[in-house]
């Protein structure tokens, strides 16, 4: 399951949905809003998603993880809206019989989600400036 959430993420409730007597491992990942990016002080982050396609593509990533790794369950929730420092932007939780599959699948889901799901973030800096991450260009050329 992959969900876009305009409401704060509730990790305890999400983790309870993973409860399974067959599971010997549960790995969770929380992505938090931090106060610095590439040397610039960050005050807050705004997340925006193209929700219908984000949930479709996110669902495909979760399905891929279930095919590649011996999982019992996998869930990812990504927040949208204006988030303050310390708030949770994304939560991934997976269960498996054994820890290896659980660690690997959790990593796979967050890495693929960052690379593929249509979600954008805008950083608000202490200077008052803002920037959409990965969208900078110089003239006709992308800044790598």
């Amino acid at each position: 399951m992959f969900k876009i959430s305009p409401e704060p993420i509730a990790p305890a409730a999400l983790q309870r949905t993973l409860a399974d007597a067959r599971a010997g491992a549960c790995v969770t990942f929380e992505g938090w809003v931090r106060n610095r990016n590439e040397g610039q002080p960050v005050l807050s982050l705004e997340y925006e998603a193209y929700a219908p396609l984000a949930e479709k593509e996110g669902g495909r990533i979760v399905a891929e993880a279930r095919e590649r790794f011996a999982l019992l369950s996998a869930v990812c929730v990504h927040r949208v809206g204006h988030l303050q420092l310390g708030e949770m932007a994304v939560w991934v939780g997976v269960t498996a019989e054994h820890r290896g599959a659980a660690f690997d699948a959790c990593r796979y889901i967050i890495d693929e989600a960052k690379a593929r799901v249509p979600i954008w973030k805008k950083e608000h800096y202490a200077s008052g400036a803002t920037a959409w991450i990965n969208c900078a260009v110089r003239g006709e050329h992308a800044i790598p």
């Binding site: 193209y50 994304v90 967050i110 989600a113 954008w120 990965n134 969208c135």
Partner: peptide
Amino acid sequence: AAVNDEFVASSASLRDGDRVVFIPPVAGG
């Protein structure tokens, strides 16, 4: 590009009534 809530090639054919979304570089997480 996405058409009708699915990724498409940038060379795909557009049809009357399509819902088109242009997707800037993503940055979730």
